[in-house]
Design a protein around this nucleic acid. Structure first.
Ligand SMILES: [Mn+2]
Ligand SMILES: [Mn+2]
Ligand SMILES: [Zn+2]
Ligand SMILES: [Zn+2]
Lengths: 137, 137
DNA sequence: AACTAGTTTAAAATCATTCTAAAGAGCCTT
DNA sequence: AAGGCTCTTTAGAATGATTTTAAACTAGTT
């Protein structure tokens, strides 16, 4: 199966029509490498690949991929959105000083006890962000 | 001690000159009630109290209070900043559907194991956000 | 090939937040 | 109590990420 067909199928399964733009972005982001991207960094990757996708579509696609569970949004500040190509359950170190986000393996954090969700609600996800800073600062 | 003098002193201790605007905001936010505010909701409170503080100063003051440890910034989405008047160590439930943030008592979450911070770094804070949703949705 | 619904586009709009530069207010010294 | 120095506040402009717009395009279907 050609890579293009592979990602097209992946998008169809996610309920997204495999347009040229979405396939291009999927090829860049959904290849199994785990990393964190912004609309801006993704646009740079697209350009580096000799392609062009409009700004609006970059934002739309990141939101749609996230909605479809192909990406995960990471919340560490309010400056701009961060997306994680690793959708497995894992947590993060965040160093505000240089806006550095680092994955923590799933098993390195153990939540021994969680509260029950409020009445009529259920837990959808548990996000742990460990804020760190340089020792000599 | 008059309330005004009380908050003025609190601000001085935090290294902030007790201006009329800062004392007004401290009176509203630092009275011991635990809640979550935005620049917008705070402005409404100020107006409701028959006062006026410029938008820029509301933002500056929230940032300065946070910097001084009188408030805490809570990160649950990228739409606008949320500030917590409870600076004690505690975690949050967050329901995205209606942007609802609820405190979780400190003892209801037990982190049995944490990873070591990366070399040369130390842990500053651990934030746990439990995302919840309505059961029938 | 024609049709339709969904998608992309460049450009404008939105909106929270920050910046600007001028006016005002704490606070220390006299 | 006045003067002066610095910090703060202000209204308004600027910024910048993100969303919206309406027209042009395209994937998928007949
Ligand atoms: Mn990550
Ligand atoms: Mn913004
Ligand atoms: Zn990650
Ligand atoms: Zn709280």
């Amino acid at each position: 199966m050609t890579p293009k067909a592979h990602f097209a199928e992946k998008l169809r399964l996610a309920g997204l029509r495999p347009t040229r733009q979405r396939v291009a972005i999927a090829t860049l982001l959904l290849d199994g490498r785990h990393r964190h991207v912004t609309a801006d960094s993704l646009t740079e990757e697209i350009t580096a690949a000799g392609l062009h996708v409009s700004g609006g579509t970059v934002y739309n696609t990141l939101n749609q991929f996230t909605e479809a569970g192909l990406l995960r949004r990471v919340m560490v500040h309010n400056d701009y959105s961060l997306f994680d190509t690793n959708t497995d359950h894992h947590h993060h170190f965040y160093e505000a000083e240089n806006d550095q986000l680092v994955d923590i393996p799933h098993d390195d954090v153990i939540l021994a006890q969680l509260p029950a969700a409020p009445d009529g609600h259920e837990i959808k996800a548990v996000d742990v962000v460990i804020h760190i800073q340089s020792k000599n600062s």
